[in-house]
Amino acid sequence: MSARRIYFVVSILVLAALPWLIATPYWRGILVLCAMNVLLALSLNLVIGYTGQLNLGQSAFFGIGAYVSTILVKSYGWNFWLAAVAAVGAAGLLGLALAAFAVRLRGHYLAIASLGFAVITYQVLVNWENVTQGVRGIYGIMPPFSHPAALFYLVAGIAVLVYVLIDNLVRSPVGDSLRAIREDEVSAASLGINRALWKAFAFCVGAAIAGLAGCFYPGFVGTLVPDAFNIVESFTMMAMVIVGGMGTMIGPVLGAIVLTFLPELLRGFGELRLMIYGIALTLVVLFMPGGMVQAWMALRARLR
């Protein structure tokens, strides 16, 4: 317990120091992106890592959060924070809609249904031009704080809060029930666990968190186009969760950090960059199926 406290305090200190250690505007931007990716990876991990639901549509909720908050601010003049609350709510509701499929479908069927869900969301963003401006995009979006360090503190602070809450949740009896559904739905039902309810819960919370991450994205980039929420984004989030170690708390965080910074560090390699990314993803799945967390545990066991 006290060891956890120490880790926690050290992480907070490192987070506080980061924007001053890495002080160029470009790298501060990457830090913000990284915090956002951590949020996304945490949200997806709750659904696939703990509840075992193959969800390839997480990019849709990210996009909903981004579009709803931006449109409310730009077209209706809402206050950013109010708009963010509405956006999170909208994403959560849409999560419930996808959960309706998850209740009836399993495994690959759910994977494809969620993929279809993301494609439809993307197409709506492209085609509903009156509202979303379609592929032309929305420009000149302001972040809630213009100073990159402040924006980083905000998003990272939210990421830490979300981490702590989810960590509590998965250690609690709720976590037991979600894992039970992941391991075997029929047995879970035989113990009185209402799988429809808890799947809906996981999808809704996961979607809401992704929507929350989405609220900060447009202001950070300054523009909003549908392509940012292509299904490829779902794959990227999935990669973060897997590479880090799904079904663990710290894994997706590490995965998000590594997969945010790795492509940046590989920029020198030009087109080979994404190739390396592809190879890395395949190799991780093949040789360390539990991701970085498992690799670390194996290493530690060997050193003992």
């Binding site: 009896p173 037991d176 894992r179 039970a180 391991e183 075997d184 047995s187 035989s190 113990l191 009185g192």
Partner: peptide, 17 residues
Amino acid sequence: RLFRQLTLLENVLAGFH
């Protein structure tokens, strides 16, 4: 049909749902 990846204790705890 056990929760194979979970510990024995976690299996039983899930039963208290």
